[in-house]
Nucleic acid binder design. Structure first.
Lengths: 200, 200, 200, 200
DNA sequence: AATGAATGAGGGTTCATTCAT
DNA sequence: AATGAATGAACCCTCATTCAT
């Protein structure tokens, strides 16, 4: 039975992923999830004790990876320091590698955790992520001659935008390579924009 | 009681604005809106004949202004042509004026219409806006040497990002001047980013 | 003001007639009636103290006439006695006159009182009418050789049918002459049917 | 609880039958039906997914039988041809057999489908039935010397009356044999009436 | 492990009626 | 005489959750 149990549990998570992705946490229906898994609503509660718990199980690994990444971000620091180089092709190369490494993080469930979690304990995660990236930006613009991009509000805005761009790529571009291209251009766009902004 | 009608109707609209803003159309509760206005749910239906009608009343002016702006966008065309100038201060001046003109459009209710309208007739408005801006981008990048930003997917992404940036400014920056500054920087950022992208 | 009052009151009755006719008492909406009269729901209550009272005002004359007719039915007795005659044209002539005399009774409001009054004090009127006609039938078949049509259940059925036929004519045939023709044929049909039934 | 399901479901259908029978579809209350079955309104939705679905379950068999009967009516054609016989007892015999065969059709739920279904998909069924019988009448009166009963309006009226008579028998005569007697007399009455009408 | 019956609260909506103005 | 704001109960329906089997 253990085998069957795991299969069903996994099926529930898969269908829950789709349901949360389509409707968000609050509007997702446990009945729908159970039905899609060919299962009874009552039985769903044998696997997950509540709607919130199901959501938690769905994204907890993503959350851990995400937290880990935030704690160890300095390992990737070099990438952003590559801005010093004048050659855009070098930048692109670094960026593509960097983003390729992040593939395991930028998953559908990661998107769900950040963007479809209103009503759960995770609803502030996106804000935390924004703050993290924003702090990053501010830190790196200390060297810059002017303080324009050090405006916290603008840094937060740009950070949120970047994150929303990532979300968009995950949500709308299913093909992995195409998505990586898009993300690379997106990051390039942001880095060059910031670069330019600090010139004046 | 005639005199109270306008007051209460306005109160309902204000509370509805808050409720829709917080929860979105589908999750907003008419009972909540009525309660916040010190009123019974039944009475709310004296003022608005349905949830959708209430939403419509809330955003219809915003929608009209928005449509008008899209139809008459060429009047502001000169702004973007100012990109030819090499002086960033000229750009900023133009942008600030341009965005100042748009102030009556970038309201909280506009945000609600674009971002909290799932389930209403307005739910596609944001998509239309994105397409509009995206077409604009593509048109203006015909002159550019390379076709990088003419990738429709990237143009759409950038357009969506820009619009989301506007939404963010409306949502998070209450002070008008501060918001105008932020939006100016945001647009500047996008124009320079696009400018740079077309170089390579 | 008295003049205006009567006009409005009459207008309310006219619109109520239409509403009750279309939806029946329970499903009729006072709001609709007021709206159709270009009037406020509140003001309707100045003219009629309740939904039931409005219905009562609408059909009370019909009810009085109806009661009067039932009490004085013997005045029309001769008509039915004409059955003795073997000539169908004589029957038809009598019937047409008889039914023409009843025109003031067979009105739309009479129909409403009998068929659209569920939920009011009048909801049993149709049953009383059926019993009245049924008693009539039974009385006249005492002379007949057999007791077939004296079966109370059958008499009641035939009576109800006849009344429903009248209702149908009122409801579905707007032209007065056409309606009179139809009713004449209908009564003829019933008289001949009864005549035949008593033969065996 | 599996064992209770069928019992409760049946109970709901029985109570629904009573409620629809008493108040018609639109005025029937699901709360009442649930309460009468000793159940919560929410639970009723475990058994039937909507008010309309409940109504559908109640009458779907009746509707199928009814459609089948209309398609295969020619099998019973001989009955009406028996009119050629001069002996009323022969008619009665045929009629009684004919109507006895129809017993499974003339049920309380059949009555609900025809007469209490306003607001459902079945609300036109009675009209279709009337047209069916009416066409039947018209077809059989082609042979007759005169065109009196071929008046479509009169044929429709008579057809509606006959059907209403059946409805009355179902509604008011619980005993099966008594009902069969009544229906036989009713049909006899109509056949003789039509017969007589075509004489003149 | 699995079923699905059952609950209770909440959703949007309509209604007859009351009453201050 | 007239307005229309306000109430409260009822409508159909959906949901997360509980629990006896």
């Amino acid at each position: 039975m253990q085998y069957k149990k795991d299969v069903l549990r996994e099926s529930l998570l898969v269908e829950a992923e789709q349901e949360f992705f389509e409707k968000g946490y609050l509007n997702a229906s446990l009945r729908q999830i159970a039905k899609r898994s060919g299962m009874t609503i009552g039985n769903l509660y044998h696997y997950f004790e509540s709607k919130e718990a199901l959501f938690h199980e769905l994204v907890k690994n993503e959350h851990e990876n995400f937290i880990y990444m935030m704690k160890h971000h300095y390992e990737h620091e070099f990438v952003l320091d590559a801005r010093g180089s004048g050659d855009i092709r070098v930048w692109k190369g670094f960026l593509r590698n960097f983003l390729s490494d992040l593939k395991p993080i930028f998953t559908k469930r990661f998107l769900i955790m950040l963007d479809m979690s209103t009503g759960t304990n995770y609803e502030n995660t996106k804000g935390e992520f924004v703050q993290f990236v924003s702090a990053h930006f501010l830190e790196h613009s200390k060297d810059a001659a002017t303080a324009r991009v050090t405006s916290p509000k603008f840094a937060e805005l740009i950070s949120r935008q970047l994150i929303d761009g990532i979300m968009y790529a995950i949500r709308s571009v299913p093909d992995e390579n195409e998505r990586l291209d898009l993300l690379t251009d997106l990051f390039l766009f942001y880095m060059m924009g910031i670069n330019e902004m600090t010139k004046y």
